[in-house]
Design a protein around this nucleic acid. Structure first.
Lengths: 331, 331
DNA sequence: CCTGGCATG
DNA sequence: CATGGCAGG
């Protein structure tokens, strides 16, 4: 074989620990245990402070947009019908995008960021029903902005940041880079947060706590669960942000958003929670639900969806009032 | 687009010449003409000199043995059931060969030549029901023998050489190398021919005459139909060899063994005859038939099959006689 | 338009 | 075990 038993296997293996008590009849053969699945509960559409959700955002690492489109990922999107769709690992230059997505009428406002260096590597996208006030690419630091990893959209009452955080890679060869990324990205988010509250979504390429992956023991030295990456996430939260899913479901086990394609990891639910909606604390009162759509197929990640009540922009409210009086706003 | 209109298109285009007389009503739109197919006639199993075929050889450029096996190429082989099977462009290291072929009981004697440099490039094979006296690899010239292009098997009454001749490539970047190959390969074959007559089969990567491809006009500057490559083949014949198919069917048009995968060339029978059984002239009296199996799918080439009457080896005849007397030969 | 390899996840 | 890109045909 070309590669020895390595990271992926640890990543994919369930806990075959010594914990299981020996049965009377010494049966060595491992029983093929029934997988412990996570059944995402019905969407809650109301926030703690009693407001109705008025914004629905979906994030999905599609692992190659072209293949994902062929696998009918867009059918699922049309069904889910979020206000904003964020995609990661599009692996597609803008001019090579399938017409099926570039011409999608539901989302007239589409933003693409592709890797400048390597073709077919990385890349993120944001599709919006309503036009953002402003859209920017990258995090304002040359060294991080060549790989199409971040799009920031400013909306009246919040920033939406979608990110595909650099993988530390096999053998952790890119862990050092990841550490500087984590520092700089956190600084970028804090900066934004001083202007307006923000929602960060995407593949953050880290499982924060042991509860966030099936096999924490075997993965402490593997990309996505090193102490350094976990600490990076902890520091992000310490800077005034909240992991929306864990906030709502602090004890929920077996809730993952990624499963390696290898060794039938997904059918055994041997997975990781790598995809997040992270919110500025000030948005927390409006949080309605943070969903894991783990039945949606088409990638090695599943989509996640956020329901949130955000304050409407003043001009929107005004426009609404004016229309009630039969007048048309001039903006 | 990445590549401009180039070689392949000329290769795949039919003759949209100016020849067609303009109709009364100037109809510019090209009619989708019905393809002119070649229907290989029934196998002739008797030679001119009245002997029955006693040797059946099949040659097939499989364009990747592993994919070809998955596409059920071996089912066709079992049906055809040749005594010897020669394969080109196996693109597979010996240790990566599928068990389905390495364990094939019909052919106990199997010989593999793979490219030493590039993995998954070139490579030929020979599978035999009866064991050859001797098998050699390459043509005895270092510079040519690193790419797994030739296997020679010595049988009692003839040599069998299977070859995958170097492609001159796009832009003819390897035409110079091909010319030295042609010289050296011809010398090698002449050398062998002095010992025993030979059968050469395989993908010789040249369409010899205009009759041997659909679009000769458009391909005079393209790999496989340059004057240099055609001349190389002419010189091979001049050295005392015969193109068995053309010998039997001198006027047969539309008989091809290769169609580019592009632009539906195969369904339109826009092809090339690149695969041959070339015989020492002294074997000509035993030639029964030279077939083009153009219905067999699984590659961009189709297989070809030779029926020939070869003289049985003396020891074989003797063995046969002895067994008639109830005695066992000791060789 | 196919193949097999490669880097990356 | 998937993706997309690449060389080669």
């Amino acid at each position: 074989m070309k590669r020895g038993k390595k990271a992926e296997e640890a990543a994919a293996e369930g806990e075959n620990d010594t914990a299981s008590a020996p049965s009377k009849k010494a049966k060595a053969a491992k029983e093929p245990e029934a997988p412990i699945l996570y059944d995402d509960p019905p969407d809650k559409m109301t926030s703690k402070d009693g407001r109705n959700a008025n914004m629905k955002i979906t994030s999905w690492n599609v692992d190659g947009l072209r293949a994902w489109v062929k696998k009918k990922g867009l059918d699922w999107v049309r069904e889910e019908d979020p206000d904003i769709l964020c995609l990661q690992e599009t692996k597609c230059a803008e001019k090579a995008l399938p017409a099926e997505i570039t011409s999608m009428p539901e989302y007239p406002h589409k933003y693409w960021a592709a890797s400048g260096d390597k073709e077919g590597y990385s890349g993120v996208a944001m599709l919006c029903k309503t036009e953002p006030i402003k859209v920017t690419y990258g995090i304002g630091k040359e060294e991080h902005d060549k790989e199409g990893r971040v799009i920031t959209a400013e909306f009246p009452s919040f920033y939406l940041v979608t990110a595909y955080v650099p993988n530390a890679s096999r053998g952790l060869v890119r862990l050092d880079y990841r550490k500087t990324w984590d520092v700089d990205f956190r600084a970028y988010l804090s900066e934004l947060d001083m202007q307006k509250p923000l929602v960060l979504c995407g593949d953050l390429n880290v499982a924060h706590q042991e509860i966030d992956l099936k096999n924490p023991k075997g993965n402490k030295k593997n990309a996505g669960f090193t102490p350094e990456e976990r600490e990076g996430f902890s520091q992000l939260l310490a800077a005034g942000f909240v992991d929306s899913f864990r906030e709502l479901y602090p004890k929920q086990t077996n809730a993952y958003t990624f499963w390696t394609y290898m060794m039938n990891a997904r059918s055994k639910n041997v997975g990781w929670r790598l995809d997040y909606f992270v919110l500025s604390s000030s948005l927390l009162p409006g949080l309605c639900d943070s969903k894991i759509r783990n039945k949606a197929m088409g990638s090695d990640h599943c989509p996640i969806t956020l329901h949130i009540a955000v304050r409407l922009a003043l001009r929107k409210l005004l426009s609404h009032s004016l229309q009630a009086y039969g007048r048309t706003p001039v903006w």
